[in-house]
Design a protein around this nucleic acid. Sequence first.
RNA 1: GGGCCGUUAGCUCAGUCGGUAGAGCACCUGCCUUUUAAGCAGGCUGUCGCAGGUUCGAUCCCUGCACGGCUCACCA
Length: 492
Amino acid sequence: MADEKELFRVRLEKRRALEALGVNPYPTKYHRDATAASVLADFDTLAKEGTIVSLAGRLMTIRRMGKASFAHLRDRSGTIQLYVRKDRVGDDRYDIWKKIEAGDLVGVKGTAFRTKSEEPSIEVFAIELLSKSLRPLPEKWHGLKDKETRYRRRYLDLVANPEVFTVFEKRSRIVTTIRSYLDERGFLEVETPVLQPLYGGASARPFTTHHNALDIPLYLRIADELYLKRLIAGGAEKVYEIAKDFRNEGIDRTHNPEFTQLELYEAYSDYNDMMDIVEEMLLSVAIETAGSGRITYQGKNADLEKPWKRLSFVDELSGRLGADILSIEPPRLREECAKRKIDAPDAASAGMLLAELFDHLVEPSIDEPTFVLDFPKEISPLAKERPDRPGVAERFEPYLCGMEIGNAFSELNDPIEQRARFEAQLRLKGEEREEAQQVDEDYIRALEQGMPPTGGLGIGIDRISMVFTDQPSIRDVIFFPQLRPEKTPPGD
RNA sequence: GGGCCGUUAGCUCAGUCGGUAGAGCACCUGCCUUUUAAGCAGGCUGUCGCAGGUUCGAUCCCUGCACGGCUCACCA
């Protein structure tokens, strides 16, 4: 009687028995006027005044003792003990109660009292089945640990491990805090196309789909950048979008094929203003989620109350290599890579080699909240060049707790230059054209119309959610992370 | 894609130096009106991830595969 099918059959049997007793196993509504937490918060008053409270939730445990039972009822707010006595609910209702089991959703009415051991409880006089559960609960003591099952059946994970909710509540507060921050500063929240005839705004492989009526290929966006900047060209001045992007690439602890990004653009600003926004906005997120700017991620501390460290990509890497990286020829860069056993694809350009070297030599040592500045222009096709430093882009990437959490720049708004940059990208990427920025002629036309000088910023919402909820994997901040489909789906 | 680890009952896990397997929880039956990892008595439960190989015999050893985790690589 313990294999899965048998457990299911036994529960179905109980459902039938309940129906035979005139019980609808799936009624439409239940009126409740309290939660476990609200009762516990106000317990002594409720007990003294004998107030009738009505609660609803899932039965997690039942301890039956013949003509009386104890059970724990859980709702989103918490857990409270129920005491069900035969002489209080009546013989008929007690027969029904005997067919209700752990995992079922019920509504109860009763009064507050403390047991001999002082546990605050509800003495129930009316109990109603609200939804029959046909599958067993995971182990009551050890819970559900298997990660695969937890990710695949998040509903079961949430039942077995309610603390998972707190991570997602925090994630929600993070997004709310960001919205308030931007709304208060006059930013307009907008929506731009997910389905795009050209993909752009990042270097990544897209998901491809097809529109039947138009009979054209469409791509799921890899970024919203180029559309948001069209709005800036149209005079929007301050816009943002918090949206899903899709990148057809590998999955690991920090990458999910669909992920959420904040992108914002502010006219008449530059990347320095974007740094101010990152510092201020994330401090407000930290205060909201952690109570202060001091946070801990996986044992590492970060203090967001201090200004972020500035680290120059070009200077730092030049220091490590003992030469000005912007004037090193590609063969020498290849040597440097080889010396350190860093993979250097034949097609890699100077800029790509520099990015490789940086990722291996500098990135691992980034610990404090840091803005990595001064990226080579060649790997920053949408960013303006620094007027005082040719070859260097007005761009930065914020790093929090060692993790890259975004990307920002003074937006390139010279249409002639932008076209040249797009074309250079296509040449550089060679066969890997799919990852290159495509030449978006309409975007260039928008720049030709005239886009003000603009600062732009992208922040990975999943990544910062990992940090602010102290979760080691992106899968722990996404309810339904992408997994390979189950080999044998349920349903026999 | 490479390396390492995992996969045994619904859940959490043990185990078999090769002889087709166990515990606790859950579940079933009975008793029990202040229990709380309720208790007592009795009971049920398995393609040991999948497929080959070696062997008289494989859940165990070997090979391949699947799924997952970690990690390296790739990838903003």
